[in-house]
């Protein structure tokens, strides 16, 4: 279910973000209620609500009074933008740092990428 690595509400928010990016949750689609989340993951509803609060603050979700929470129109685009930025920072830059530590030349990395891409096609 949840690990102890980060606060549960953060993990809930991340899960919803994943679902939006991967297309499981569509634009303007209603999200499960905090109570449903709480019951499903066996957590306090206030914790689930905190995760939702985080997402509304980021503009990922919006609230329709008395109905529930919905995925906002720009959610997917802005999440993709964020992830792209993070991708270079967290994956590419880190890979390059590691490559330098263990002495792998960049040309070898590029060769490997082209090889993988080639076998894809």
């Amino acid at each position: 279910m949840f690990d102890d690595r980060s606060p549960i509400y953060q993990q809930i928010a991340d899960k919803i973000k994943d679902d939006i990016v991967s297309g499981i949750l569509q634009e303007d689609e209603q999200v499960m209620s905090t109570n449903q989340y709480a019951a499903f993951y066996r957590i306090n509803p206030a914790t689930a609500a905190k995760g939702f609060h985080l997402l509304t603050e980021e503009g990922i979700l919006y609230k329709k009074r008395g109905i529930g929470m919905f995925v906002s129109g720009e959610a997917k685009q802005s999440l993709l933008r964020q992830r792209r930025e993070r991708f270079f920072e967290e994956v590419v830059d880190r890979m390059l740092a590691e490559a330098e530590t263990i002495g792998v030349p960049i040309s070898e990395i590029i060769g490997r990428i082209e090889q993988a891409k080639g076998s894809d096609e």
């Binding site: 109570n35 709480a38 019951a39 066996r42 509803p45």
Partner: peptide, 13 residues
């Protein structure tokens, strides 16, 4: 015990 946690949460909500 898990049945209890589920009931507790459901009833609380």
């Amino acid at each position: 015990r898990y049945a209890f946690y589920d009931e507790l949460l459901k009833d609380y909500m």
